[in-house]
């Protein structure tokens, strides 16, 4: 077996292992989620946020008032168990992300090119960025660790579907893709998409949580049981916004880079090819999200809905436009 083939084979094996590890992380996050009852401040959280005067102290104070004994003194065994499960889940996710990155690295080495030559590789990379975005948020703001269950669940299911339906052998690029702009354009699209992916999930959770906060403790039903355990709505809203703020300029750059490439490849920088049209639509939706979030009457739930809609548009653009609508961007590598 040639080196390239054995590298590609190893990448395939590690892809399966990635899914396995992420599944374990999902389970661990689920355990944390199930065993954490109220919005307690975890120990790590307190370490990172020393008591201060001002607004943030007020926020911490609010939570402390809800649960004064537990967060001040020893946490209950149950909360301790939940916290351990969460830390374990973070560790497993980190290992999974490492293997995940290795898959991409090996596929790149096997084909001697950037591992973004077909839809399988693109989707794999989007999931990787999504996980990385989550890890970044959860390390900075430990409260957001509880979002992990949903991000990891989505990523795991997404990777399974990716492996089942979008899988393409590692191979050389078609002539049209042999350009320096491939690296610039597709990498940035992928990074933007990954940030939007996690942001969309966080906004969806914000919708659940803010409903719970409106209805209050008396709420019943699955949504309220989830909402009860989620971080507070303001934190979720800020996290989603932060990811879009990160992803939107990168996505904008990706569209510009794509236009520059299109100018040299197809003879025009913009031609309303279906993929270009949907890039335009997604850009507008995310621009609308940023505007809405700063507009009275739109900030909060309406803005969150727009962000969720943005993710739907991105997914539609990935799946429907690549696989169903014929266009110049037909590089899926699927027959």
């Amino acid at each position: 077996m040639s080196d390239a083939a054995s590298l590609a084979g190893l990448a395939d094996t590690l892809f399966s292992i990635t899914i396995l590890v992420y599944s374990l992380a999902t389970i661990a996050f689920a355990v944390e989620f199930a065993f954490s009852r109220e919005a307690t401040v975890s120990e790590r959280d307190k370490e990172r946020q020393p008591a201060r005067s001002g607004a943030s102290a007020e926020q911490i104070g609010q939570i402390q008032v809800l649960n004064p004994t537990r967060s001040e003194s020893e946490p209950t065994p149950r909360a301790q168990f939940a916290s351990r499960a969460g830390q374990l889940a973070m560790g497993i996710t980190l290992i999974g992300a490492f293997i995940h990155g290795t898959v991409l690295l090996l596929r790149g080495l096997a084909a001697e090119r950037i591992p973004l030559g077909n839809m399988f590789e693109h989707a794999t990379m989007v999931a990787f960025i999504g996980v990385a975005g989550f890890l970044f948020l959860a390390v900075r703001t430990p409260r957001l660790r509880r979002v992990g269950l949903f991000v990891l669940l989505a990523v795991t299911v997404g990777l399974v579907l990716n492996g089942l339906f979008l899988y393409a052998e590692s191979g050389p690029l078609v002539a049209a893709l042999r350009s320096r702009w491939l690296v610039v354009h597709v990498t940035t699209v992928t990074i933007g998409f990954g940030a939007f992916l996690t942001s969309g999930i966080v906004s969806a959770l914000y919708l659940v949580r803010s409903r719970f906060e409106e209805v209050g403790e008396g709420a019943v039903g699955l949504a309220s049981r989830i909402g009860r355990r989620l971080p507070d709505a303001a934190t979720l809203d800020r996290a989603a916004h932060r990811l879009v703020i990160f992803g939107f300029p990168i996505f904008t750059f990706a569209v510009i880079a794509g236009a520059v490439w299109a100018e040299s490849a197809w003879g025009r920088f913009w031609g309303w090819d279906p993929k270009e049209t949907w890039a335009f639509i997604s850009w507008i939706v995310y621009a609308a999200y940023l505007h809405a979030r700063a507009t009275a009457g739109w900030k909060g739930r309406a803005a969150a809905w727009i962000n969720v809609g943005g993710l739907a548009v991105m997914l539609f653009n990935l799946l429907f436009v690549n696989l169903i609508i014929a266009g110049l961007h037909s590089y899926a590598g699927i027959n």
């Binding site: 309303w272 279906p274 049209t277 949907w278 335009f280 639509i281 507008i284 939706v285 621009a287 609308a288 505007h291 809405a292 507009t295 739109w298 436009v321 609508i325």
Partner: peptide, 15 residues
């Protein structure tokens, strides 16, 4: 905002 959404919506039949 409404016009932004309208613009996005109007682009859909184009694809």
């Amino acid at each position: 905002l409404m016009l932004l959404f309208l613009l996005a919506l109007a682009a859909v039949p184009g694809s």
